[in-house]
Design a protein around this nucleic acid. Structure first.
Lengths: 172, 172
DNA sequence: CCATTGCAGATAAAAAATATCCACGATAAT
DNA sequence: ATTATCGTGGATATTTTTTATCTGCAATGG
């Protein structure tokens, strides 16, 4: 059982995007730099998040990504499913049918109990991830993490976020 | 997130071994046949179960595998961890440190909140698997599954289990 | 002795994850 | 309009992991 590295990247990016103001965006290249990741590969994962409507993207010179909805309504489950796919970790291959004695298909209408138990566990896993809101991750980071780390992170966001043209970002 | 196919094989084999009587054993080749699996590869997984003290093995012509302890004290978690390894699915690469701004290591003493949330979810997953006893899987199968399937399975076990030499298997 | 079985290690084949690149459309600044 | 920047999608390459096979070896019952 293993989660791809893209999950870690995706969550960190989403958390960082939670810090950009208004409808500003942040370029994928900036996030790749922030985490020392391959820009071209990170794009793939950000794209998955876009497709899942977790992020929005803006093309063009001032373009980049931003959250598609408030961080309060984004969970780690949303992100994990978007990046890793929605299929369960355990896939029942129905190997019980593969023996030398081939019974009629009607003998296997009842779902495999092993499969049921494994899926139940995964349900618990997903429920726990669904409880973890991106906003919680961010606020815990703000309060608990080392002030130097928080300051550096915020500075990075402030430096790389890009205000958008059309919509006024609450200018004083 | 994906579980190897070996997990399914391992659980099915363990469930089948739960049906052998006394200290009898069943050869790996028999189980491979029962599930239509590659014998040489199945051996690998059975070996992991042996190493984890979930199964016992006996060499020699009458040899094979049997449960190392009663099915009541074997959980799906035991099996999954034995086959897939004990490392968590999410491994924090600490990519937050990989940015262009290198802070002192002391700025990262607090564990990453993302990692904590992911591990918490996995803890829930493992807890659910720990609740699933092999004996439950087997007894549910006996009562719920199609009688033809149960009969075929029991017949297979009866035909392939091999009594051991030294210990008397409650012979009438 | 000898046939059968599990064990360990080397190896190979297949699949998946990771990473890079390029042509393209969108867009903002000039 | 031109240009430079950016995301998109597809093709492709590289690396790692998984799956599978084979061989020699030790154990053991007959």
């Amino acid at each position: 059982m293993k989660l791809g590295e893209g999950v870690e990247a995706a969550i960190h990016c989403a958390a960082m995007l939670a810090g950009v103001e208004g409808d500003s965006t942040m370029a994928a290249s900036a996030m790749a730099e922030a985490f020392g990741l391959s820009p071209s590969y990170l794009l793939k994962h950000l794209n998955m998040l876009s497709a899942a409507r977790i992020l929005e993207s803006v093309s063009g010179p001032a373009g980049g990504y931003r959250l598609a909805r408030p961080a309060e309504r984004i969970t780690l489950l949303d992100i994990v499913l978007a990046v890793e796919g929605r299929e369960p970790a355990f896939r029942c291959g129905e190997i019980r049918r593969n023996g030398p004695v081939r019974l009629d298909a009607s003998a296997y209408v009842k779902p495999c109990g092993i499969n049921a138990a494994m899926l139940k566990a995964e349900k618990a896993y997903r429920a726990a991830l669904a409880e973890a809101k991106l906003s919680d991750i961010v606020s815990e980071y703000m309060t608990d993490a080392d002030p130097r780390s928080v300051a550096a992170g915020c500075a990075f966001v402030a430096r790389h976020q890009r205000p958008q043209k059309s919509s006024s970002t609450k200018q004083a």
